[in-house]
């Protein structure tokens, strides 16, 4: 297992784009130490900030991580990255495969534009987890994002495909969704603002938009299939999907082919 250990809190944000097991496997420790990670004109390199230990395996551990580490696991295609600590913005951005786990919390835009693989955040995620960055065509785009704690506002903003499971989310969860699925125990006010398609499932939710209409109690095969697929990943979320659910359709401001499921009761 290869290991990068942050020596001390970095004096500037660091960009860890492309630092994945496959790329490091082809490098000696001295070569890896010369990789640029700084974002200021000082030109900080990996070796300036991290103690590096490489063994060519497909698993990379990042120890002592802080919220100044941006784009951790960005572009990951295969293998495993395990982060101990917090991370900054755009965790796993554009990721295509493999697994990425964070023991702490993540900054905004976790999983943005990720097309494959699984991201697990044990703690909280800031705003727009699984959401699109400024001007981007899509947020989460096929990957799986699991947030153990609370997600901020606009969870899954403009996501196009994939699955997000979170304990809680702030306001405007599923805003501008193009497609995909979000399952959460609790979401805030006005979920699904501007959503075109896609599915939101929540045990509890805040105020609904006037452009969401109830379409009755539904017993859909697809929900049972979704529950089955979630069983291994998030058993609580799977249990929620097996309960009797009421369906709301929206956002009728836009295409209106999205839906919100909440327990009957």
């Amino acid at each position: 297992m290869s290991t990068l250990t942050l020596r001390e809190a970095p004096p500037e944000r660091l960009d860890l784009t492309g630092l994945d097991p496959a790329r490091l496997a082809g490098l000696s420790e001295a070569e890896a130490a010369r990789l640029a990670v700084g974002t200021s004109r000082r030109g900080l390199t990996l070796g300036d900030c991290f103690a590096i230990s490489l063994d060519g395996s497909d698993c990379l551990r990042i120890l002592g991580a802080t919220d100044r580490l941006d784009r951790v696991g960005a572009g990951l295609a295969a293998g495993r990255i395990v982060v101990e600590g917090d991370v900054g913005q755009r965790l796993g951005a554009g990721m295509r495969g493999g697994t990425l786990t964070v023991s702490g919390s993540a900054g905004p835009f976790a999983g943005t534009a990720a097309t494959g693989g699984t991201i697990r955040i044990a703690g909280d995620a800031a705003g727009s987890a699984g959401g699109a960055v400024h001007g981007a065509a899509a947020g989460l785009d096929g990957a799986t994002l699991v947030i153990g704690g609370s997600a901020g506002d606009r969870l899954g903003d403009r996501m196009r495909a994939g699955l997000i499971v979170a304990k809680r989310a702030g306001v405007h969860a599923g805003a501008r969704m193009i497609a995909g699925t979000i399952v959460a125990d609790e979401i805030g006010d006005y979920p699904g603002y501007g959503m075109r398609r896609g599915t939101l499932v929540a045990a509890r939710h805040g105020a609904l938009l006037p452009t969401f209409v109830e379409t009755g109690r539904q017993d859909l095969v697809v929900l049972r299939l979704l529950a089955k697929s979630l069983q291994a990943l998030a058993p609580e979320a799977a249990a929620l999907l097996r309960a009797p659910l009421r369906r709301y359709s929206g956002d009728l401001a836009t295409l209106g082919k999205g839906e919100l499921f909440a327990p009957v009761g």
Binding site: Y190, Y193, G194, A207, P210, T211
Partner: peptide, 15 residues
């Protein structure tokens, strides 16, 4: 605008 606020009202108007 209604109690859901201005952004919700704009969406409603669009619908």
């Amino acid at each position: 605008a209604g109690e859901a606020g201005l952004a919700a009202a704009i969406g409603l108007l669009r619908g």
